[in-house]
Simulated scan of single mutants.
Amino acid sequence: MLPPVANRFVAGKTAAEAIDHARRQAKLGIDPMINLLGSHHGDRATAVADAEEYCLLVEDLAAADLDGQTAISVKPTQLGLECDETLFRDLLADVIEAAGVHDVFVWLDMEEHTTVDATLDAYEEFARTSDARLGVCLQADLERTLDDLERLADVPGTLRLVKGGAYDRPTGIAYTTDPQVDRAYRRLLERAFETVEGTVAVASHDPAMIECAIDRADGTDLELQFLMGVRPRAQRTLAAEWDVRQFVPYGTRWKRWAINRAKRNVGFTARAVAETVVPLRNGETFEEELGVSVPVSESGLESTGE
């Protein structure tokens, strides 16, 4: 059982809890993207263990028979990239194969700028040479990303566009101010809708960017993505008209993730604390029950660094 603040942003410690959460969201028309928390594994055994858990997770997702399209999200450094690139590719291949057997989509997350080349090379190879349903994240705050988009536009996979990652960026490779990142993200969205043949996944909590994406989609398949626990009412509302997917993390390594989400989303943290004092009825949210509104971070959905 997670504490009240953490359980806003983390589904639980076990895969079963994550799948239970996903089942509830599926009834609202929101598809899951389940992630086992953990990254930057420096030893082979831990990376292998996480890959094995993902292989079991896709079996459990298939058995759960959820409505909609199920997906998992994996991090390159979780699958051994910091140990050895060959190990990373071998473990990723195992996960992709297992997911393919059970018709589960695989999202490959993006981490530090030093991992971009290895991540995109692996994505392009597996997307072009397998029948797997596969997607990768692109970070708008990196100055290279428009070129990466052009490279990947005709790859038979799906691109997930975020504003940036929760990582330090050396001078000269990234946009560093909010206005710069916003402009870069708009350019990335516009170019994606001009060049990408398949689905474009827009991962942002920023209402202005969501509106921009909807206005410019113009026939392109559009998926909107959110983190668990952030703007839940918006997720439900948008799911009535658009494909919506929610990032659902779980695992014993939950503390750092929950703390980071709480810091970035002060409004929901306040609600979580308040709801321990003011019980809600019939699944209402705190603001619906009390008739108040607490500001929530409108920042773009970062790729999920821990």
Results as ranks from 00 to 15, higher is better:
M1G: 12
L2H: 00
P3C: 04
N7L: 09
V10T: 12
G12Y: 02
G12R: 05
A16I: 01
D20V: 02
R24A: 15
R24N: 05
Q25V: 07
K27A: 15
H40Y: 15
D43Y: 05
A49N: 11
D50C: 13
E59R: 05
D60L: 06
A62K: 13
D65H: 12
T70E: 06
S73V: 07
G80Y: 02
G80N: 04
L81N: 08
C83E: 13
V101A: 10
H102S: 04
V106D: 08
W107Y: 04
T115C: 14
T119S: 14
T129D: 13
G135T: 07
L138K: 11
D147G: 15
D148Y: 08
L149E: 05
L149V: 04
E150Y: 04
D154Y: 08
V155H: 07
L159V: 10
K163D: 10
G165I: 10
R169S: 12
T177P: 00
T177F: 02
D178T: 06
D178C: 00
V181I: 15
R183D: 12
R186H: 09
R187T: 05
L189Q: 13
L189M: 14
E190I: 03
R191C: 05
A192D: 11
F193E: 07
T195N: 03
E197K: 14
E197I: 08
A201K: 03
V202A: 08
P207R: 10
E211V: 04
T220A: 14
L222G: 10
M228Y: 06
T237H: 12
A239R: 08
A239P: 00
G251H: 00
R253C: 05
K255S: 12
A258T: 04
A262P: 01
R271A: 13
V278F: 12
N282Q: 12
T285R: 14
L290I: 06
